[in-house]
Amino acid sequence: MNPETIMAARAVYQKIAGNIGKVIQGQSGATRKLLAALASGGHVLLEDFPGTGKTTLAKALARSIDASFKRIQFTPDLLPSDILGVAIFNQRDQAFHFHEGPIFTNILLADEINRASPRTQSALLEAMGESQVSIDGEHRTLSELFFVIATENPVEFRGTYPLPEAQMDRFAMRFMLGYVSPEEEVSILAAQQSQHPLEALTACVTLTEVLQLKQVVQAMRISDELKRYVVDLVGATRKAAGVQLGASPRASLALMKAAQALALFDGREFVTPEQIQELAIPVIAHRLVMEPQARFAGVTARGVVEGILKSTKVPA
């Protein structure tokens, strides 16, 4: 791959990141991870308290790309057909016509995903895993760029259903935004004094450019030793104390791909251990099912992955 293509792809990343930075302040780390997921073809689950900017971040990304964007507000009475679409009988021509649901889009914001019942949440399984949906026995392929950003409140909140493990595993990453520093919060207040900067945001890259970015990311080089490191990290979760269900090979795959994206963002042509370490927690932690006993003892999935990162010998 010639350096110009790589430079162009990196420029696409920088443009989107800069555009989002106009709206979301003090969240460059979150933006970086979000774009890494987008560029590596994974989906993202944002978990945080209400009002920390999850939806704004998702909308800023959607507006930055000249692509179709749809949003589903998840509620307890939402049905799978509300997401996938439904075939309706037309009396005039005596035939069923399929009405596409919001899932037929490029960027899908699944807002407060854990407020819907697991049944509805599961409607996303096939779409996220295989980029296709089966409705009435018919396979319909989704568009080439299909990126789901889901937001959720912490599971202990009222009126929430925990996501099924299989659904959790479909998300490449889960991370928190966290509260910003007081100075940044003051500048958020200043920015939104007259109008929301989101409304002024315009698309800065085209769909084609994003697809090219994805292709470049796939071509980033990664050595066998680091692939082994990825597998060691993921494999260690299956043997860790207090973990009932360790991470799947899908986690290894997602970690490698996301690390490739980060390598591109960092201006490298190959993956280094730092990129893998940076992404290990957001990619692995949410897939672990902890034992109740360990959970009561205060052991968290995040803590387990941190421990594994510390104890596993990093290639250097």
Partner: peptide, 8 residues
Amino acid sequence: RPGESLTA
């Protein structure tokens, strides 16, 4: 340390 990358 064993888990520390070179840059860190």
